[in-house]
Design a protein around this nucleic acid. Structure first.
Lengths: 338, 338
DNA sequence: CTGTTAGCGCGTTCAT
DNA sequence: ATGAACGCGCTAACAG
């Protein structure tokens, strides 16, 4: 079928080793043999079998990014960031999705599969902490996201607490008093760590301001999608007419909020302020432009890669100690807050 | 370092073959040996080396989706679609980006790399037709997108012409006369086939309506991003005050259009109608909700996989004839048109 | 400057 | 029911 190095070697009257050397520019090869090899390869339409090389070399020069789903803009932006950062070292990035299927999460985390890569960046947003705890991947892995991660993993996250506090404090300062947290969670809830932590930040802002925390404005949501944000606002307005602010725990959610509010008589930001979290590219073009929290993704990505490379380069007998890092969040004021 | 099948075999006092049989549930193995093998594997923390299996089997059970960049929502949604469609057959999807770097396009298209996969779905949006013409991939490949693709590839595209015609006709019927096409192209332009084809659809709608085609309202754009859409509208309004409609060739672009218009005194859709193309999930939540063209992505994805599987299953000596398919587009009227 | 030997880890084939 | 031999395609190490 497809020709191998040996086929080329025979055709050129040399050994497979020489073909390998010519094609990879290694070793000193005579000009005439080089020519023979090259034309033989061209004639046969030879193409390297990377699988064989990977097996032989024990490395794939490929890093995997594992995310829940690529139709969430946040992960798409992350994928571009990592791809760019990997360019200089000549490595490839491949992205795999778990689609939040329980078995897929497990299979995406499957050691065997991960071993196809030199290293793995894993976004464990929807993975249950207990499952993470039992993972024993044999590949270098850096965890990303807001779950609680066991110490034996490197972990890079954004500053959920501080970001949420900043967002809420900003709206309190500009006059909001009844700020709902969409996608929030009560401390005892079995939801994502992200939701709980951001809710704690929201509470902290109220306390810092010396105001009572409006616990009735915590709105848990099964997922931070625009549709659920839209629906939630409609329900919320039905019985909480005094709402004057919304902290949506993600920008996607906020998009749904803006859409729902635009169908009411309430003005944004005059009557209700809205703020998101993620600073997606698209958020600069909502109507009005979305105020949000920038989670320091560039820092996150850079640090995550640094930690991953440290693991990859580490000698097996002297494994580096693990680091847990938090990228600084910052407030981005645009048109949905005053 | 990591243990192999042979290590497990020794530990269990059997042959590697038996370990393989136990772990893959193949062949009939005695209950007692099965137990010994399984506990030996567990103790050693054994994990399959997929690279070796791939080399041996000559297949990877993995399909690649190659896209320009994942921070364009369209490709993220496509990735989820294909991943879902591949579930039933137990195959994996991995996504690679080209990031529109010339060398990366070539390297992503590199035969050697593609051969890591059983099949490749390639979205060639930003690839120059001449480059495509020279490709001789040795893997099953199905092309997606709007470039002109040589006959020797299977190709699935959306109905750019018909979609654009529908979009424009809709706005003409509802009273617009001066409809700009953002991201359009003149016939002789060296831009993407998508831009040219959609511009032809836009023209056709004018002609169908018996109206003169406003060639001055063709606005070429280097990329269909929200930012460029935003900028373009501002420029456009500066010298074409009589504008009463905008056909943005993608939804992302339309997002920027809506943002720019919201900063003017012009009302959407009362003064200016706006329509996009792609029917992204996010477009349901713009303000107002975006009217758009649904490109029949589900059909596209299903057909693309059908063609790919046909290639994968084809016997080498009886290669199937290639198909070029066009998914039907449909109009989705929401709040930005009347 | 080039060839030989060997083996990466697995699974197919054919024995037993 | 289990094992031995062999090879998938490539490259590192050592000849010569």
């Amino acid at each position: 079928m497809t020709s191998t190095m040996n086929d080329v070697a025979k055709a050129a009257g040399v050994s497979a080793m020489t073909v390998s050397n010519v094609l990879n520019g290694r070793g000193r090869v005579g000009a005439s043999t080089r020519d023979r090899v090259e034309s033989a390869a061209a004639e046969l339409g030879y193409s390297l079998n990377l699988t064989a090389r990977h097996l032989r070399e024990g490395r794939t020069h490929t890093i995997a990014l594992v995310v829940p789903q690529l139709d969430h803009a946040y992960f798409g932006e992350l994928a571009v960031r990592f791809d760019r950062l990997l360019q200089p070292s000549g490595r490839h990035l491949v992205v795999e999705q778990t689609l939040a299927r329980p078995e897929a999460e497990r299979s995406a985390l499957d050691f065997a599969r991960l071993r196809l890569y030199d290293g793995v960046l894993m976004s464990v947003v929807s993975l249950h902490p207990d499952e993470v705890a039992h993972l024993r991947p044999g590949v270098p892995v850096v965890m990303l996201g807001e779950q609680e991660i066991p110490d034996r993993f490197d972990h890079v996250r954004m500053s959920n607490f501080e970001g949420a506090r900043l967002a809420t404090a900003h709206m309190l300062q500009t006059g909001s008093r009844r700020i709902a947290i969409l996608g929030g969670a009560h401390d005892h809830d079995e939801t994502s760590g992200m939701a709980r932590t951001r809710t704690r930040g929201w509470r902290a802002a109220y306390r810092d301001a010396g105001a009572a925390v409006p616990e009735d404005l915590i709105v848990p949501l099964p997922a931070p999608t625009a549709q659920l944000g839209y629906d939630a606002v409609q329900r919320l307005l039905a019985d909480r007419a005094d709402l004057d602010g919304v902290f949506a725990v993600t920008d996607s959610l906020a998009t749904g909020v803006l859409s729902a509010l635009s169908e009411t008589s309430l003005r944004v930001p005059a009557d209700v302020q809205v703020i998101g979290f993620d600073d997606l590219e698209a958020s600069r073009f909502t109507v009005p432009p979305l105020s949000t929290i920038s989670p320091g993704d560039e820092v996150m990505a850079t640090e995550a890669l640094r930690l991953l490379d440290r693991l990859i380069d580490a000698s097996p007998d002297a494994p580096p100690t693990r680091e847990h890092l938090t990228a600084p969040a910052s407030l981005v004021v645009r048109g949905t807050t005053r």
